[in-house]
């Protein structure tokens, strides 16, 4: 019997090509399995064959979204796949976005089942959970052994057209799809049960959870930037040489406030990047690529902006939890307001 043909998508790191310094490699396709493809193949079993593996650098994908997708779709086509699996990406943000984007494109173009996997705080989850089955994983690749079997189990069901159960049963991120089913007990009984539990202060779980949208309305525009004090905030990990606050290079638990009084630009002798999520070579040479002090200072002298705050705020964005980032923002915004800052440029790598 002919085997079910599977294509696997991974990034440069899992292909063992390299870390951030190789994150800009263009897509390539290799016959057979590479890296985590071994676990994928063994989880899927003999009826399936991982016929090829697509490898693409995370930065290349992120910076060339459309081009990367087109190239990869063309690479995959001759293999006539029946199933596409991407990642899992765990908590790697750009990898997660790439896995989500390419999976969605493959599903649309080839109309075949696609499965990927990510940690819940991976931005790829919110971007693609409505479109895709994304298996829940832990935050790091140490979870590969646990997550790959779940990906395989769901992928098999999808290929065979078997019924996919609820997110909690199959272990995927809630997609917001409602499915009708028959309950043994009628709605009124269940509603009374719920309210009794609530009144009694016992734990209860709604049958109809509402989506949570955390959106903040835009503030009115700045009337005249030449009369405003401007501050720069960055998630790009720029700190003074030696990293005095010991901000982590990923999964940051703190931020720093760094003095730039009297400086015309950020020099490589005084500042460095500690961000663990991109190739630091360029920014190490010129930190102004992330905190544009050189041009802002010129604009301040020319009167384009009223005044530049005499510090910038920095942390590392990569792998940093949403909870921590929110906490940093709440905290340093108080300082910005107290210091009369009227507008902020936030740069992200």
């Amino acid at each position: 019997m002919e085997k079910i043909r599977v294509i696997h998508y991974i990034n440069q790191f899992f292909a063992n090509i390299g870390g951030e310094e190789k994150a800009d490699i263009e897509p390539e396709i290799r016959e057979g399995i590479v890296g985590p493809g071994l676990a994928l193949q063994s989880g899927l079993g003999d009826e399936f064959e991982v016929v090829a593996t697509v490898i693409c650098g995370d930065n290349y994908f992120g910076s060339n979204l459309e081009k990367a997708q087109d190239t990869i779709l063309n690479m995959i086509k001759p293999y006539e796949p029946n199933l596409f699996v991407a990642g899992p990406a765990f908590n790697a943000g750009r990898y997660g976005v790439a896995c989500g984007a390419i999976s969605k494109a493959v599903e649309e173009v080839f109309n075949i089942p696609v499965v990927t996997g990510m940690f819940e705080e991976n931005p790829g989850v919110d971007m693609y959970k409505k479109d895709l089955y994304i298996i829940k994983t832990a935050g790091s690749a140490a979870d590969m052994k646990k997550s790959m079997p779940k990906i395989c189990a769901l992928a098999k069901k999808l290929v065979k057209g078997e019924e996919v159960l609820s997110p909690s049963e199959e272990g995927y991120h809630v997609r917001g799809i409602r499915v009708n089913y028959f309950n043994e007990r009628r709605g009124s009984e269940r509603a009374v049960d719920l309210i009794l539990k609530k009144v009694a202060g016992e734990p209860y779980e709604t049958e109809y959870p509402m989506p949570v949208f955390d959106r903040v309305a835009p503030n009115p525009a700045v009337k005249d930037i030449s009369k405003i004090k401007l501050a720069v905030v960055t998630s790009g990990g720029i700190v003074p040489q030696g990293n005095p606050d010991r901000i982590e290079s990923s999964s940051a638990t703190k931020y720093g406030v760094y003095n730039i009084e009297g400086m015309d630009s950020l020099t490589k002798d005084n500042f460095m990047t500690i961000h663990g999520g991109y190739d630091r070579a360029y920014v190490t040479e010129n930190p102004n690529l992330v905190v544009p002090l050189d041009v802002l200072r010129e604009m301040e002298k020319e009167g384009v902006i009223g005044e530049l705050a005499n510090y910038f705020v920095a942390t590392t964005g990569t792998g940093t939890s949403v909870g921590n980032a929110k906490g940093f923002g709440e905290d340093f915004s108080k300082k910005l307001i107290a210091d009369g800052v009227g507008a902020v440029i936030l740069t992200s790598t």
Partner: peptide, 18 residues
């Protein structure tokens, strides 16, 4: 962080790669 700056009432612009 962008959202918290906005929520605090300061207009903010996000310069980002993705």
């Amino acid at each position: 962080m962008v959202k918290e700056i906005e929520r605090a009432g300061i207009p903010v612009v996000h310069m980002c790669t993705v």
